[in-house]
Amino acid sequence: MQLLHTIEDVHKIIETQGSSPLLVTCNDFRDWVCKYDKFPAYLFNELIASEFAKLWKIKTPETCFIKVKSEHIPHDKYPRLQSDWFEKECFGSLYLEASKELDHTTLSMFQEKSFRDKIGDKTDFLKIALFDIWISNEDRNHNNFNLLLYASLNKMIFFYAIDHVNIFNSTFLDYGITQLTEDESIIKSDIAKILFGKDRKLTDIVNTLVEMLYLCSKACENKLDDILNLVPVSWHIDKNLIKKRITDNLFSDDWKKQCALNFRAFVQSFIIN
């Protein structure tokens, strides 16, 4: 994964419910959303989730590491930014200008058939929901979608998954892993009901996604060493420890079986019923 560096002052802090990332311009002359968390475990969560998502063929913004130069941190404008947070590599995701964050204000758009017809692959919505169940992402739910609606050049709309700080039940797998509750899933949302409530192929879609769970989690297991090799030394992550925790939890047959059952139960409760 490429390492970029900033070429001018931080443009702004993007106020969010979580880590409040920065908008920066790097030496590739593109704008990036820069996560700088003081806790390296959060940066690791962003990295591992984005790499796993790619193997699931879930759309996410392009990623990189970013070195924010000290002279580009305007402490007078943003006094809360501490210099030591930027002594290590930050995690960057490409700023997608032609996108809109999914929230409750967009519900009326989904109610219009003309808009729904522009969605490139609505199945991605359920795929992301299943991915979240598998990786125990507690922060993407019916009140906080953490999804972008991205308009491609041909005007088709696609779901892009963002913000994965709170995977592993918002821990570093210190206490194992537990299933998401219904309130921690985007399946419990009006948008899920609108997209799939009348879809006669929903059973086939669900069955295909459950098959993908087993195939994609195996692909992630096979690539785990390569992904861990991406982790910067400056993050001080115990790679052997986290590898064992991920292997014991995410890749166990019992966990995958639980995830499949939970996914089916959510679909039955909030879309079919």
Rank of each mutant, 00 (worst) to 15 (best):
L209P: 00
I227R: 01
T178S: 09
E8C: 11
Q17D: 13
T105E: 11
P40T: 00
F251V: 06
L261R: 14
D174M: 09
F145K: 12
N27Q: 09
L228I: 06
D117C: 06
R30D: 14
W255M: 14
N143G: 13
V231K: 00
F168G: 01
F168D: 02
S252F: 15
V233Q: 11
S83R: 12
I194T: 13
F266T: 06
I227T: 05
L126A: 03
E87N: 05
I119A: 04
L228P: 08
K193L: 04
W56F: 08
L241F: 04
K77I: 12
I128A: 01
I48N: 05
E112M: 12
L3N: 11
F251I: 05
S185V: 07
L202I: 06
K239M: 10
K257E: 10
W32F: 02
D226Y: 01
L213E: 00
L147K: 12
L173I: 11
Y36L: 09
K88Q: 13
N262P: 04
Y150M: 11
T6H: 02
K59E: 11
T60Q: 03
L230F: 08
N222F: 06
L148S: 06
K201R: 15
F110W: 11
D103G: 11
E97F: 12
D76I: 09
L261V: 13
G120Q: 08
Q179I: 00
V33R: 00
D117H: 14
A129P: 05
K88I: 07
K69E: 13
V33G: 00
I177L: 11
E101I: 09
L213Y: 03
L43A: 02
F158P: 03
A260E: 08
N45S: 06
D253K: 14
L94P: 04
I48E: 00
D84Q: 07
D84N: 10
L148V: 15
K12H: 14
I167R: 03
K113D: 13
V165I: 13
H75Y: 11
L43F: 03
I162W: 04
E15H: 14
N45I: 00
S152R: 13
T25A: 00
R200Y: 07
P21N: 12
F65Q: 05
D183I: 12
N154D: 15
P21W: 08
E8L: 09
K239P: 08
V24Y: 02
D163W: 10
Y36W: 09
L55W: 02
E87Y: 00
T178N: 14
